[in-house]
Design a binder for these strands. Sequence first.
DNA 1: GAATGCGGGCGCA
DNA 2: TGCGCCCGCATTC
Length: 525
Amino acid sequence: MKSAPGKLHSPANQNLRAQRGSGIWILDMEVVLSATWLLAGENDNPRCSEEPAHFDHFCEWPDGYVRFIYRSDEKKAQRHLSGWAMRNTNNHNGHILKKSCLGVVVCARACMLPDGSRLQLRPAICDKARLKQQKKACPNCHSALELIPCRGHSGYPVTNFWRLEGNAIFFQAKGVHDHPRPESKSETEARRSALKRQMASFYQPQKKRIRELEAGVNPNNSGHFNSIPPLENPEEFDMITDTGFPAPGQPGFSFPNSDAYKATCDLTTFQGDIMPPLQKHPKPRIYLPRPPCSYELAGPGSTNSSPYATLYKDSSSIPTDTDWVHLNALHYNVNSYSNFERSFDFTSKQHGWKPALGKPGLGERTDHGQFPAVAARPCYNPELPCRYLTSPPPGAPALQTVITTTTKVSYQAYQPPALKYCDSVREVSLSSCNYASENPPMSIYPEALDLPAAVTRATSPAGPVPLKIPGDCRAIRPTLAFPQESAPSRTDGAETWEACPSGLGSTISYSDAGSPFFSYDNDDF
DNA sequence: GAATGCGGGCGCA
DNA sequence: TGCGCCCGCATTC
């Protein structure tokens, strides 16, 4: 965003060319060269001056070891946006912007929202703001908020890398988020802006009336806002929403219909002491307009995380009565969090973690903050029941890709697992975007996940079934041979890369078995 | 005020 | 040396 374009721009190396065949990214040898990827600019490889032939649609929820190439005019890419709460990380490389995931903020008591989901807030990016955020109380149960750190990359936060190259913006994600999706930035912004608008309209009549009163005017008392007490501290209201009372439809927030929400989500009950000013008002009603997010508003079949979905009501239709916080019911996967719970349950078993209070699942868990900061922590993404599948099992190779973010990257040899990746990838590979329906196949790269297919299947709530879940940008390569971090060199390692874009039902593969073109130095970032 | 990007610096492996 | 991370600073919204 603010970064000087020149900073991340190094025109000397547009070394990646991707060709799309059969609707799938196919990487030719030159693309294999693209292993230089984000670090390409550091190599000044004169051979590679071509611009990418094709670009990916922007993916707001990249997950897994994926790479994308965006057009340089892609606004979201320009801003290095991500649905995940990513903070800037200094990688001492001015050409590459590195960001690490902050995780998600949840209720420490894992209280259940009226719809059965749970709070999943977007951690503030700013450290101070984040601390401040964590000091706030859960808008639902008033208990503490807790930050679930991301440990999806070998125990470290998932990292995203951005590099501007000519007319392309190269993106690479490393690690699999082992936590639920937070509220996306667009959602947060939309909610805040909506709230501001709402508050503005809320105050306008008040101010007007005050002016009128001050002017000696005595309008009749039938005015809607007559009963509205002065909001002494508007920030409190903002705090509540910022604290993350997720708008319906946000990740982990869903209601089959608005009535259900109305019946269960009385703001005065919900906010309790958090909103004393509004409590004074007997019938507050707040509408949250739909954010201007187009691609997030996929169909019901999508795992779209947008909080504002089909039952959105335009703010213009705000009624005057203020009985309820009339949030919009959303067409959202109500079971999302149960998936989350299942995943937690699984991982608890898998890793010997025991949920607090002896109950499985996040629902009863009260120890968010006590999670061990281990690499194999489960994936909690509520929208992807198999998310935890992407977590490497204990003992599994932590990293298949050695990407040094400062100067060079090394793809190192990996000991191929017994299972043939090609056979299993169709069953378990996940690769999609929020707007999968419109999104072209994305690039899947060898750093993709490494969980054995057996584990993957075993951990699926639905059993060993094919898993193709649209709605985000995840890449799972459960059985693929990966370059392993611990391997001494990758020139001796042959690997087959496959991409299985969601909904395509096909895979591609490309190998780099000791290709002379495949210099693993400076591969990525 | 918060988000964002940059860069110095430190500790660890 | 690579990497994660903290911190401060500057800029932008």
